[in-house]
């Protein structure tokens, strides 16, 4: 179990281009195919991960590791998640200082960035639908929609900081639900 967690998060670590929200669908894919937690539990994990300081992807790995296999699960999942990027960074730093200016790197990112866009868009849509799974138009769906719209307005109009969004939506949740 521990070994499996480590390997799965290492795999995610290797392909986690885009970081943050682009990685959420990757983690979810693995979590549901291994039957580690339900969709609702996974959403809770992402909410908690967003609340805590630090990168959301690594935080999610810690939380999922803890839920599935306790302290060692948390430690091994976190290490699994960051180890590949460490190795890659060391190789880049040691060998190719100006890697990002090579033409083949540029052309591969030309194709990779739209894929990452698709992944993040999928994360938004999927996360939205998971939230409203209970009924087509219930109070909770409406309230989530309202909070989401309010946050969008705050971010666009007032350049609200991500953590302020989390705090504000948490308070709104206590009032509305």
């Amino acid at each position: 179990m521990l070994w499996q967690l480590f390997l799965v998060f290492m795999k995610i670590g290797v392909i986690s281009f885009g970081g943050g929200y682009a990685v959420i669908p990757m983690i979810e894919h693995e979590v549901s195919s291994h039957g580690w937690m339900s969709g609702a539990q996974f959403q809770e994990v992402v909410s908690l991960a967003g609340m805590a300081p630090g990168p959301i992807a690594t935080n999610s790995a810690t939380l999922i590791g803890y839920r599935t296999a306790g302290l060692w699960g948390a430690i091994l999942s976190t290490i699994g998640m960051i180890l590949p990027s460490l190795i890659i960074i060391i190789i880049i730093a040691a060998c190719f200082q100006r890697l990002h200016q090579q033409s083949w790197v540029k052309s591969s990112f030309y194709g990779l960035r739209p894929i990452v866009t698709g992944l993040i868009a999928y994360a938004a849509i999927h996360f939205g639908f998971l939230s409203s799974s209970d009924a087509a138009l219930s109070w909770s769906t409406l309230a989530t929609g309202l909070i989401c719209a309010g946050c969008l307005y705050g971010i666009i109009r007032f350049k609200m900081h991500p953590w302020m969004v989390i705090v504000a939506s948490g308070i709104a949740g206590i009032i509305l639900f």
Partner: peptide, 29 residues
């Protein structure tokens, strides 16, 4: 209360992901 706060945060996270998708789309597409 905690449960309600976490449900609210889900709404906030959806907004954050939407913004992330929009920003990414702006530079990628």
């Amino acid at each position: 209360k905690i449960e309600a706060a976490l449900k609210g945060i889900q709404g906030g996270i959806i907004a954050l992901i939407m913004i992330a998708a929009y920003r990414m789309a702006k530079s990628a597409i």
